[in-house]
Structures are given as C-alpha cells and as structure tokens.
Design a protein around this nucleic acid. Structure first.
Lengths: 150, 150
DNA sequence: TATTGTTATACTCTATAACTATA
DNA sequence: TATAGTTATAGAGTATAACAATA
C-alpha cells in the first residue's frame, strides 16, 4: 500500500539524494550548534562572529545572516556585553555603526574554528572526494541562484 | 584584516562544501515549502502527508517528522478537517489511532509530487551526477549516524 | 524623503507537563 | 507502572511597525 511504487527511477534517485542532503546538513547544523553552545553562544551569535571576519554594519550583517535587521540589535548586544565585539562609529555615516571583533572575540572564534574539525561529518571524506562533492554541488547550484554563508 | 588567511587548504575546502551544502538544502527546503503553500499546506502538514504512504500511529509519525508527539495532534487535526486523512481506531490497541490518507489526500499528494519536479534544483544534474552525489553523501553519512526523511 | 539602528510587539514553531484512557 | 493521544502553556526565533537620528 506504499504510494512510492509509481515513481520513476530518476525521481527515486532524486528523492534519495534529497533525503541524504537534508540528513547531512542536519548533522552539520547540529555539529555547529553544539559547538556554539559549548562556547555559550546561541547559533545566531556564533554565525554573527563567523561573519565578522571583517567589520560590517548592523544591516550588512543582517543580510549575511538572512534575518531582519531588528534581530541583529539583540545579537550584537549580547556579543558586546561579553566583550567579543564592539560597536564603533562609522566615520563616513553617523547613522551607521561598525561591528568590530575584539581580540577576545578573535580568540573565541579561532578556538571554535579549531575545534569544529573534531567530529566533523566531512572528516570521513578525502580531499578528492570533497572536491568532487563541491563540484557537484556547484553544478546543482549554478542552475538555481546566489549564495548563503554560515 | 580577514581572519580566514590562516585556514589550511583542507579546512578551506571543507568550508566551501559546507557553505554549498547549506545553500543547496536551503533551496530544496524553499522549493518544497513553496509548493506546499500553493497546496495550502504548512511545511509540516505536507511532510506528514509525505510520510503517510502507509498508515501510521500518531507517535510513529512524530518520530518520522522528528518532532514531539504533541505537535502531531494539531497537524492531524487540520489534515483531517480538510478531508485529506482520517483517524481510524487501531484494532489491536485501543489507545492508538491509525492515520490513513483518504483518496482526496492521495490525489493531493500525487499532484504535489508531480509538480515538485518543476524547478527542482536537481534538474540541472544528470543521472550519473545524481548517483555520484548520492554515493558521496552516503560516504559522509556512513561515518555519522541514522536517517531523516522529508 | 529614505535609511540606520532601536524598541515594542506579535506570530510561528516546538517542547514540556499534566491529564485521560487504555495497556 | 507505562504508553498513546490530547490540551494548555511557555520558550525560542523571527518579523512587523513605529520611532529618533541622520542622510
């Protein structure tokens, strides 16, 4: 009584790939979020730190994080309270604030980046396999659209 | 002033693959959710329908959807109100309810499955590429853990 | 008149706890 | 004593709207 019986071979193959892609990304996200939690960061705080390799305005960061600018206020608040980032005035536009990572923030980010390799789902793949995977994902993405960072 | 400069080649490669994986799954999810919305289904309602190819109990469905059983009540409520599924008594255990897709539900599910191919991010890939992608994802998942359906 | 950042607020999604009826 | 399903409720995450300062 399974309704899958009338799916074409290609449809079944696509479904297999989609399922695995979702599962794998679920693992990647869980891995990242677990590590963030160990550093006492919410996932969004960790992603913010991750995206402040160079200073950005609040609204630019909102774009990077694919969220509304109003959310960034709270994220920046808590990172600043912990001394991981600073709000600095923008010389060219007094409406803007430049979010700059402090030395303590750089240290924490570096520590997180170092530890992220442990238990990473992609450890199982060799360099050649990773490169092949990247190229296949590129081919699929080429037909679709822009980028997204994490 | 970019902090990425001290990342190893392999680390950079992994980061590239992770970014692409997140982006691609974002597209897949958006594609699925958009189609669900066109059918006037929330994403979870659509996933429930997707996972009722054969009848299941509420708690079994909760396991498939990776959510708490208390959420399934509302999902089933709305699908039942629309006549897409039915709650039937379980002959062997009077605590249990069997969720069964109605003919109308089967029709809607089939329509959704047919339409999902249009604009699907994986249309850009040929059968060989899809198979290669599946195998690479399998290799990455083999080292990690169990499955997840959508 | 438009934009940056902030605040207050509301909405969605999900989990927890308490309850019932069965087992 | 434990489990299936329901209900009420609370929390996290996110978006919308209104506002002050500045462009």
């Amino acid at each position: 009584m399974n309704t899958d019986v009338d799916l074409s071979e290609r449809h079944l193959l696509m479904r297999d790939v989609v399922m695995r892609a979702f599962t794998l990304v679920g693992h990647l996200r869980a891995h990242f979020d677990r590590l963030a939690a160990e550093m006492d960061l919410t996932p969004m705080q960790a992603r913010a730190l991750h995206n402040l390799g160079e200073p950005r305005s609040m609204s630019d960061l909102a774009d990077m994080l694919h969220c509304d600018a109003s959310n960034v206020t709270g994220i920046a608040d808590r990172l600043e309270e912990r001394g991981l980032i600073e709000r600095r005035p923008d010389p060219g536009d007094r409406r803007r604030k430049r979010l700059v990572v402090t030395p303590a923030g750089v240290d924490l980010h570096r520590a997180m980046r170092t530890r992220i390799v442990e238990g990473h789902p992609f450890n199982a793949l060799g360099d050649d396999e990773l490169a092949a995977l990247r190229d296949l994902l590129d081919a699929a993405l080429a037909a679709t659209a822009p980028a997204e960072t994490r």
